[in-house]
Design a protein around this nucleic acid. Structure first.
Lengths: 142, 142
DNA sequence: CTTACCTCCGTAGTCGACTACGGAGTCAAA
DNA sequence: TTTGACTCCGTAGTCGACTACGGAGGTAAG
């Protein structure tokens, strides 16, 4: 779609572009979340936009509460691997994501209401945030 | 709505009900996320359903990627505190939550498509998950 | 009133996710 | 060709969020 410019960065400029620490990139490489490009015989490794996109994805997924291990699983879905396996995993992750969306939407509704009503009604003692969560939620973890 | 039963638990049964460790509850108390109920003179503290609801909320918020500090801020909104302040904070948090929802919905769309198309089309080499995230996203942190 | 199982509380350990450090090598501009 | 900034890589430190430990005391069943 939009042309892929800026191919071939050093790890430093990559880190800069992704707004993370160089060491963090190396760390992700050690964990296998990023592949280390070939080093040209006593030279310096070069990174392209795919690496940048991958880093941004990792950052966002982290921000959304996924562990690096989970992110690794999500990223495995990329590598046109074994279809059935990927499909199953994808399905599970999808459920996971939808649970998170539902939870966030609940919180959204409550926060929205809270911001709306805040100064309007004075004698609202109890907490809508918590009250609205009284209806139990499945033990969603993982 | 539904009657509040099971008031007055020990910390052990509270932990049990919330499916977390006793030590974690104490930890939250130390951080000020939970208040420690009065100890009846050489006796044992008792907890009610509010404490349970609060714990469940904390757990869910953690799962959604909020730090304990952020959760503390969210919980402050409860304590009928200074309206304007709460309103501002609530507004900010609301934006935060909506960003998360949008991000998750993007991931949801991609995962859904991936699970759908997985085995259908063979020669799909590149990664939709990552590809779909090529369109930059604001630096959303905090 | 003993026994088993809690609570209480302070301190210390663990684990995931970074982040820093240091010395040797590389590259580009002046 | 020197200088300054950066890469490489292994190891070690930090930080947030728990989790464990241990000894003194409470509590309830038999």
């Amino acid at each position: 779609m939009s042309g892929s410019q800026n191919t071939s960065m050093t790890i430093g400029s990559l880190a800069n572009a992704a707004e993370i620490n160089v060491e963090t990139i190396r760390y992700y490489q050690r964990l296998g979340l990023m592949t280390e490009p070939e080093k040209p015989l006593g030279g310096i490794r070069r990174y392209n936009d795919d690496a940048l996109a991958r880093l941004r994805f990792i950052r966002r997924a982290r921000w959304l509460g996924f562990s690096l291990e989970e992110i690794g699983e999500l990223l495995k879905l990329e590598d046109g691997t074994h279809c059935d396996e990927a499909k199953a995993l994808g399905g599970r992750k999808l459920g996971n994501v939808r649970d998170k969306i539902r939870s966030l939407q609940q919180i959204e509704g409550v926060l929205d209401q809270l911001v709306e009503e805040c100064c309007t009604q004075k004698d609202n003692v109890s907490c809508p945030l918590i009250a609205s969560l009284h209806e139990g939620f499945e033990t969603v973890t993982q």
